[in-house]
Design a binder for these strands. Structure first.
Length: 661
DNA sequence: TTAGGGTTAG
């Protein structure tokens, strides 16, 4: 029995005035103080008690352990005159809960020296410690001891054993223990259910769930949570509906899980229905449910509603703050994200990561890096996802220096072996033109997934190492278990196109569906058009465009037009330019390219009239832009415009170099 | 004194 904090103080006061002593009331007082986190009052009552029994000692020691006061607890434990299996077990349990499993084991071994026999609860605690330590042999020897003492068919111990085997990934042992149990309860079933969900065998999990003779709200919440986390969100929602239909009362955990599932589905109407239920039972102020709701509204692009829920949560923790920051970030509302980020009382690395990801999302790469600098300065430890974002920002900026700095930091923290960080590094170096560094990182990676292969193959192709890119692709096909995907094949086509390997490219394109089972998309088609156009097979390219199953991308037409320019085919150019100008997205592109076709053919009159048309229609030219960094300064070069302050000098030098060549 | 479930980034 516990008293609330106000009542505890009142009763404490009354007892003092009464000057009486009742052991039971004092023990209750200690428990109440500890329950409310008032350790110093509990200590005072305990120290001033004229007489203590075994219960006083055990509850005070385990209360201290519950609040992390380990040294003090151990000191009181050593002085306990009522040393029995309860006091030892409670202490062992407290140590395990403080993640001091090694110390817990030591205490367990000491029990024998003092002649105290462990009971069933001792074994469950100690098995948990073995699980924490990841020591399979130790767990098995504890199991042996428990059998020796006669606990072979003990339900709690068997349940703990199942969990222990699961923690160590010993699936067969877990299943065998479960199958051999004479008696099973809802905990045993939930544990084994969890195993199948964790293994990703959701069908078997579902079967187990159906088979369970008994369910409670924890087993429901276990299966709903697991389905939700593993991405089987529709199934999670269905189970929730079933649970309600079966007249079970969903608890906080069920609501948070189902709301989180609805958030990934971006199911706003369903979310609002659940929100209404939550409001009805007064659960919206709960930090778990509230946080899920904030996330739901933000993922459904309704940051306003998310903010209302956020403001209504009385006791916000860092997860809750992070959800609103990431919610605003996700929706590109970086002003709000930054403002709330600044108000977080105690940030963690996820808070920083959320803001960095936000700037990355709106392609404000320099701010993303600025936040990263702030993170380092604040002493917060970046994690692998920080580096993954930061390196992506570096890849998009001309600065190789910043990328190198982030790389050094990642090395220092030992994240270089992480596949996400490794991939981001490969990509960053390739995009910054440092193909050699990119290759070094790639070759050092112990495990490679399709993303990193894609990054390397693409990096080589885009840096002009087309042959190498293609041989890497072949190596991937022969030496790895990674199957080519659409993106990799796009890089392969790109490489063929830039290498002039038209027939090989066409062979890859034609085998996409047949050999690799990948439907080519618009981008693949565009790449083939570019490939044909570059090699002068203009009519073939035109036919390819006419025959393709999609409306050609503007880029495909532009690529063909570019081919017309190189090979001086003005008739085809006019036809294509007309098609291109119908496109809203590139009204200018067609004309600019057409005027280039005329220019290369020396038809200056046509050039002029085309350019006039661009101006008449009030079209803004949007040319390409190159960026380089020289001595920490960014220089931008736009196609067709000489806007750089030193363009005169630059072109002069360029001319000089050209004449030298 | 014990064994099963919960919200945020990538």
């Amino acid at each position: 029995m516990y008293l609330d904090s106000r009542k505890s103080l009142e009763i404490d006061q009354m007892l003092k005035e009464f000057d009486g002593f009742n052991l039971v009331v004092h023990n209750c007082l200690i428990n109440s103080y500890l329950e409310w986190g008032n350790v110093s009052e509990a200590r005072k009552v305990f120290d001033e008690m004229p007489e203590r029994n075994a219960v006083s000692w055990t509850s005070f020691v385990s209360g201290l352990l519950k609040h992390g006061n380990v040294d003090e607890a151990m000191s009181y434990f050593g002085r306990n005159p009522f040393s029995d299996v309860f006091s030892w077990t409670a202490t062992i349990n407290g140590l395990v809960q403080n993640r001091l499993s090694f110390e817990a084991m030591r205490l367990y071994k000491k029990m024998a020296v003092y002649g105290i026999m462990p009971n069933d609860v001792t074994f469950t605690c100690i098995l948990r410690a073995c699980g924490e330590l990841g020591d399979f042999e130790l767990g098995k020897s504890v199991m042996g001891s428990s059998i020796k003492v006669g606990f072979e068919d003990n339900l709690s111990i068997s349940n703990s054993l199942v969990t222990f085997f699961l923690r160590l990934g010993e699936i067969d042992f877990a299943r065998r223990t479960f199958d051999q149990m004479k008696e099973k309860n809802v905990i045993s079933w939930t544990a084994i259910l969890d195993m199948y969900v964790e293994m990703g065998d959701l069908e078997e999990a579902h079967r187990i769930f159906e088979e369970m003779p008994e369910r409670n709200e924890v087993s429901w919440s276990a299966i709903i949570a697991r389905f939700s986390q593993s991405g089987n969100v529709e199934e999670a929602v269905k189970l929730f509906q079933q649970m309600v239909k079966d007249r079970f009362k969903p608890n906080v955990s069920c609501y948070s899980s189902v709301i989180s599932a609805l958030a990934s589905l971006e199911a706003l109407p369903g979310g609002r229905t659940i929100h209404a239920r939550v409001l009805k039972i007064g659960m919206e102020r709960n930090v778990f449910v509230g946080t899920s709701l904030v996330d739901l509204y933000c993922k459904c692009k309704s940051t306003k509603d998310g903010r209302v829920v956020f403001d209504s949560i009385p006791e916000k923790n860092v997860v809750c703050w992070n959800s609103i920051v990431s919610g605003y970030s996700l929706n590109g509302q970086l002003g709000e994200a930054k403002e709330l980020f600044n108000r977080i009382p105690k940030r963690n690395n996820i808070s920083w990561n959320s803001l960095i990801a936000g700037y990355l999302g709106i392609e404000n790469f320099s701010n993303a890096l600025e936040v990263f600098d702030g993170m380092i300065l604040s002493g917060e430890q970046p994690n692998k996802s920080t580096f993954s974002s930061v390196l992506r920002a570096c890849a998009s900026l001309p600065s190789l220096e910043k990328g190198k700095y982030a790389h050094a930091k990642a090395l220092k923290l030992g994240f270089q072996h992480d596949i996400f960080v490794g991939t981001a590094l490969v990509d960053m170096y390739a995009k910054s033109g440092s193909v050699e560094s990119s290759k070094t990182i790639f070759n050092r990676m112990a495990t490679k997934n399709e993303v990193v292969w894609t990054a390397m193959i693409q990096g080589l192709a885009e840096n002009g190492f087309a042959e190498e890119s293609l041989s890497l692709f072949e190596e991937m096909e022969h030496a790895s278990s990674v199957a080519p995907n659409g993106l990799i094949l796009l890089s392969v086509l790109f490489a063929c196109s830039h290498c002039g390997l038209v027939d090989r490219g066409l062979k890859y394109f034609n085998s996409m569906e047949k050999v690799y089972g990948i439907m080519p998309n618009e981008r693949h088609y565009t790449c083939v058009v570019d490939m044909l156009a570059r090699s002068g097979r203009l009519r073939e390219a035109e036919k390819f465009i006419t025959d393709m199953p999609y409306e050609p991308e503007a880029n495909a037409l532009a690529a063909l037009l570019n081919g017309c320019k190189i090979y001086g085919d003005e008739i085809l150019a006019e036809r294509i330019a007309e098609k291109l100008t119908g496109r809203a997205e590139t009204k200018t592109g067609g004309y600019v390219l057409l005027s280039n076709v005329y220019a290369s053919g020396g038809k200056w009159g046509d050039v002029l009239s085309t350019r006039n048309m661009i101006n008449q229609k009030g079209m803004k030219r949007s040319g390409g832009c190159s960026r380089i960094e020289v001595r920490n300064e960014e220089h931008l070069f736009y196609s067709q415009d000489e806007t750089h302050s030193q363009s005169k000098e630059i072109y002069w030098v360029l001319q000089l170099i050209n004449s030298e060549i």
